[in-house]
Amino acid sequence: MLETVILIVFAMIGLSLLLNIWRLLVGPSVPDRILALDTMYINSIALIILYGMSMGTALYYEAALLIAMLGFVSTVAVCKYLLRGDIIE
């Protein structure tokens, strides 16, 4: 049963990634695109954790942690750039 449920959740998260890509392409403003990218990195963490579960290995945990940290830092850096025109003043 678990295999089927994992496949269904894979489909759900894939669908939400597609919706995010739509928002990323349509825009209309730069903060909208940043928001879409921010949601996309969180969804890819979910995808990696699910892949690890379906393969039955905990090896992908470190990759998920790294994506979480890099995604947060990059979101804040891009927002800072939009606010000030510079990241470190």
């Binding site: 049963m1 678990l2 759900m12 939400s16 919706l19 949601t39």
Partner: peptide, 21 residues
């Protein structure tokens, strides 16, 4: 329990993206 938690999590992630669109 794992299946129910997975389905809840997946649907919340999906709802977040629906809200985004």
């Amino acid at each position: 329990i794992i299946s129910i938690l997975l389905l809840i999590g997946g649907s919340f992630v999906l709802v977040g993206s629906i809200g985004l669109v």
